[in-house]
Design a protein around this nucleic acid. Sequence first.
DNA 1: CAGCTAAGTCATCGATCGATGACTTAGTCT
DNA 2: AGACTAAGTCATCGATCGATGACTTAGCTG
Lengths: 195, 195
Amino acid sequence: MTHKRDREATRARLLECARLRFARDGYDGTSVRDVAGDVGVDPALVFRYFGSKSKLFTEAMATSSAPVVLPDGPVDELPAKLLRQLVFEDWAEYAGEHPLIAMLRSASHDDMRDRVRQQVCDGYLGVLQELADGNEDADLRTELFAAWLLGIGILRTAVGTPTLAKATEADIAPHLAAVGEALFGRPIPVPEVPT
Amino acid sequence: MTHKRDREATRARLLECARLRFARDGYDGTSVRDVAGDVGVDPALVFRYFGSKSKLFTEAMATSSAPVVLPDGPVDELPAKLLRQLVFEDWAEYAGEHPLIAMLRSASHDDMRDRVRQQVCDGYLGVLQELADGNEDADLRTELFAAWLLGIGILRTAVGTPTLAKATEADIAPHLAAVGEALFGRPIPVPEVPT
DNA sequence: CAGCTAAGTCATCGATCGATGACTTAGTCT
DNA sequence: AGACTAAGTCATCGATCGATGACTTAGCTG
C-alpha cells in the first residue's frame, strides 16, 4: 500500500482537468489556478510538473486516454466515419466536442492556429483525398468537404443552431450521401447507424 | 474650423480600432489599453464613453460604416450571394473576415455564443429557408448549407488550409452549384464572377 | 480677457494571472 | 527510530487588466 502521493497519478489528473477546462473555456479562459483547484492541488505544482501554462496545454491536447485516431477502411465509408467522429462522437475528455473544434476556441493565438491547421492538413485532408481522386480540383473538393464537416460540428455545438443541435446521425446521413456524391462524383453509402 | 477636440469623432475612431482588435485578437486578447493606444488617447476615456469593455465590444460589433446587410433578390441567387458575403468579401473593418467569423474568436464567452447564434438564426437561416421549401427536413437542409458556408469561411481564414485559402470565387462557384442542388433539389445558378 | 463647459488626462485601486524559490510533509529504506 | 528523498505547499513577485474619481486643459462665448 504505497503512494498516497503518486507523482504520475497527480500528473495524469492535472492533464485530465486541463483538457476539460481548455476545451470548454479556451486557453485564455482557463487559469492554472483553475486546473490546480479542480485537482485539489497547489498551483505551483503545475509549474513544477509542466514548466508553463503553454506546455500544459500542449501536453493536455496531445495526450488522451481516448486518442484521436484517423478512420481507415474502404474509402467510400470514410465520409460517414468522419462525420461520426467529428460531429457525433461524445468526446467526454474534451467537454463533449471533437478536440479539433475544442481547440478552435483557443485559435486567437497564432500558434494554436498553426496547430489546428497542421492537424487538419496532415490528418483529415489526407484520408479524404483518395475520395476526390480522378476529379479535377481534387484538393479543393477535399477541403470543401472537410469544411462542411467542420461547419456542421461548429454550428451544432459551438453556435448551437436549433435543428442541427438536435439532429441525429440518422437525420444527417442521407444528406451526407447526397453532398458527398455531388462533390466527389461517386456514390457515398449511407452509414449504418446503430439503433 | 472648430473642434480639434471632437467627442463624436474620437468615439468613432475608438469604435473603429476596437472592431479591428476584437476581430483579429478576440475579446480576451484585446485590452482597453490596446484600443486606446491605437487611437492615441487615454484608456480612461474609453470607460467614460462606453462604460465598460463589454459595452465597447457590443457597440463595436453592432455599428459599422459598412454594415452587414442580408442579401435579397431571386432565391436561386441567394447561395452565391451568401458565399460572396461570408467568404469572399473583404471586411476591412473587421480585419478581413466576415463579422460573424470574427466574432467566433470570442465565443468562449457564453454571451458571445448567444449573440452569434441569434445572428445566424434570425438572419442567415431565414433568408436561406425559402430555398429548402418543398423538401422534407427543410430546416435541416438549410442549416446544413449554412454550416458549409461557415465552414468554408473558417477553413479559409481562421485555419488557413492551403488550397481553400488561395481559392477564388470562380473556383468554388461550380461546387456551390452542385452542393446546392444536392441539398435543395433545385438548380443553383453559377454566380457571375466579375473579372 | 475672463470664465464656463466639455474633452481628455493622471494617479491609483483591487483583482487576477503566470511564474519562482524556499519551505514543509509524507513515504520509504536501513 | 531516524534520515533521506520526492511530493506537495506557502509566500511572494512583477506584470497586466478593468475600472474609478479627481484633476487639467482646450475651446467657445460674452
